[in-house]
Design a protein around this nucleic acid. Sequence first.
DNA 1: ACAAAAGTGTTAAGAATACACCCATGT
DNA 2: ACATGGGTGTATTCTTAACACTTTTGT
Lengths: 225, 225
Amino acid sequence: MTVAGVKTPEVYVDGVLFQLLDNELTVLLTQRTRSPFKGQWALPGGPDPIKQTTYQAMSHWVKEKTGVKVDKLGFIEQLYSFDTVVGNPDGPAISVVYMGAGRDIIPKATPITRNSQFFPVSSLPELAFDHNEIIRYAHDRLRAKLSYTNAVFAMIPKLFTLSQLQSAYEAVLGEKLDKRNFRKKFLSLGLVHPTGELHMEGAHRPARLYKFNEQTLEYLSRSFD
Amino acid sequence: MTVAGVKTPEVYVDGVLFQLLDNELTVLLTQRTRSPFKGQWALPGGPDPIKQTTYQAMSHWVKEKTGVKVDKLGFIEQLYSFDTVVGNPDGPAISVVYMGAGRDIIPKATPITRNSQFFPVSSLPELAFDHNEIIRYAHDRLRAKLSYTNAVFAMIPKLFTLSQLQSAYEAVLGEKLDKRNFRKKFLSLGLVHPTGELHMEGAHRPARLYKFNEQTLEYLSRSFD
DNA sequence: ACAAAAGTGTTAAGAATACACCCATGT
DNA sequence: ACATGGGTGTATTCTTAACACTTTTGT
């Protein structure tokens, strides 16, 4: 657009959506169907049409390219706006990137993309644009915000065992935690409470099922950055 | 601009620049010379011309409107990108906002603005657009990042007394801190070291002058959000 | 001598860490 | 009976918080 005689850059939006699969942190990618980077994997996104907020535009493109509904995620926030410098033949642009996390996300085949799937963040292919870097940045931020947002709870079932909660933490942080200390801390924080139900599975003692205290959610999501 | 037949919003950039004056946190504002909000105070900024990064554009407009050179600040980072919804007759837009902090900043009269000055954040006038809200957001973030960035050090002299450091903290946090605990913690962190010089001023015991350990700066500025 | 800010230590409470064994279940 | 993951407690260290008096200077 042109403002007071000044041409401003194009605006793109992208989403970095995380999910846990097999106790591994994964990120949603989609295969590009056109140049540049045709055939390569990339974050879902597209140009930001006017008459929508950047959030709505991101939501639209993620749905369009991967079939995933962003509104159903439990955690989503703006990550950063990147100046796009390389590989964009359409001219200068900025990309407003959102980051989110959810569970049970199944990408669906859509008309305008070849393919979409979740890749483990620890072994990503070489992606289009600077998307490898963006994902690294998002992962760093997710790691940093785990302890004071509801992000983990968005990635595990509504009813969960403390072991599930712990392994979600471990998957995001990339390190093992001490079981007793983890449980002690979480229970003392008062963020979760036992439901009385049990999770029976496998040849071992059943696990108590817990629930996240939604009341504390508001406080937690009043987060900066 | 138009991408694949899609018109994208205009891009604006703004800067939220903090400085301490009389042990009070203040923010740089400039008086608007044209509609909308003509005559009202606002954050310095303007449209983002292509061929510049958003940082460069913000730097340009801050200089143009207030005479302040952003590159001389000790702390600057991207704050957030806001969807501009109201009061913009030129159509939909997004505003990429940067936040910074410095010392001894003197706004200069410039041709394209009536006036620029620092206002205490605790008593701001009603500003143009949603700038009051943006400053509140920036202040929250600055507060949160004080303890793990070099932001405070950007706001005090290179050689400083521990009392100056403490009152900078207090000005940003908006609360009094315990002198002994503050000093103990800072000295044990190893972020600062005494220079041996003394600061003589007033009818009281002279104060030791300290310096920030620049080595630790890199680690500190590897910050998220 | 007094006013004004600089400087200094100890104690108590709470948080973080390290660490090893018994429990309930399915096969 | 055994394999599997669920569940539990204590001692130690480190961090945080609360709190009041002496020192050095200028006037």
